[in-house]
Nucleic acid binder design. Structure first.
Length: 244
DNA sequence: TCCTCATATCGTCAGCCCGG
DNA sequence: CCGGGCTGACGATATGAGGA
């Protein structure tokens, strides 16, 4: 684990006067890694910028003609690939199709306003066998296993009847029974966890990039410093030649 | 081969910040 | 004010190195 600067500073503190609130405040005031790195990059050349995610979205045409860098890729039992990108976009590609071609771009109903022309995936709550299902147009079902460290996804033909407790595209306004409310809450929680999981991954990736950037900056500055010291010594020699 | 330790990675929670 | 994103903190788990 990477020790934070604040923690090391705090360990040097002789008293416990600095309460956790203050420390928290100091920590929370830190700008995001993206901001810091972008500020660094504006300071000098050679410092890579962390791309704003928005810019990537902007670059992507509304029809999702290009394949966005997926957050997670899963292979189904039938050999198909499911890429879950940021923003809740699910892309399904068939083996044999050339890369981008053959992709279906699907947007989950609860991931914000879908772009025009996007296909709607109907997300259902936990089914009886402990799985979660995304209902995909074309009479297929993306099933997420609930157990195991790695979430697994399968594309299945839907079973004859919906599993017990499955709500098809339940809109908040149509929920009535406590069971439905509980399912909605569970569904929201699962979605929130999934998003936070991806956010944490992205955050860690940015942090690594940030640290790398700082390290390379240190290396550059050390070289600069060394050169300046040498230059200073040279100038000293010129200005005050030895009289021996 | 097994055990221990250090380190890395991941998921989750809590709290802050920011845009709408 | 609220919802969602970001990130520090924490615990769990995985992995690799080194010693018995």
């Amino acid at each position: 684990m990477v020790a934070t600067i604040a923690e090391t500073d705090e360990s040097a503190e002789s008293e416990d006067v600095i309460d956790s609130h203050k420390r928290r405040e100091i920590l929370s005031r830190r700008p995001s890694y993206r901001k810091i790195l972008n500020e660094l990059s504006s300071d000098g050349p050679g410092v890579p910028k962390i791309e704003e995610e928005k810019s990537e979205e902007e670059r992507t045409p509304p029809h999702i003609a290009t394949m966005a860098v997926p957050t997670s890729i899963y292979q189904t039992s039938t050999g198909q690939y499911i890429a879950i990108a940021q923003g809740g976009t699910i892309q399904i590609s068939n083996p044999g199709s050339d890369g981008v071609q053959g992709l279906q771009a699907l947007t989950m109903t609860n991931s914000g306003a879908p772009p025009p022309g996007a296909t709607i995936v109907q997300y259902a709550a936990q089914s009886a066998d402990g799985t979660q299902q995304f209902f995909v147009p074309g009479s297929q079902v993306v099933v997420q296993a609930a157990t195991g460290d790695m979430p697994t996804y399968q594309i299945r033909a839907p079973t004859t009847a919906l599993p017990q407790g499955v709500v098809m595209a339940a809109s908040p306004g149509s929920l009535h029974s406590p069971q439905q409310l509980a399912e909605e809450a569970t569904r929201k929680r699962e979605l929130r966890l999934m998003k936070n999981r991806e956010a944490a991954k992205e955050c860690r990736r940015r942090k690594k990039e940030y640290v790398k950037c700082l390290e390379s900056r240190v290396a550059v500055l050390e070289v600069q410093n060394k050169k300046l010291i040498e230059e200073l010594e040279t100038l000293k020699d010129i200005c005050s030649p030895k009289t021996d």
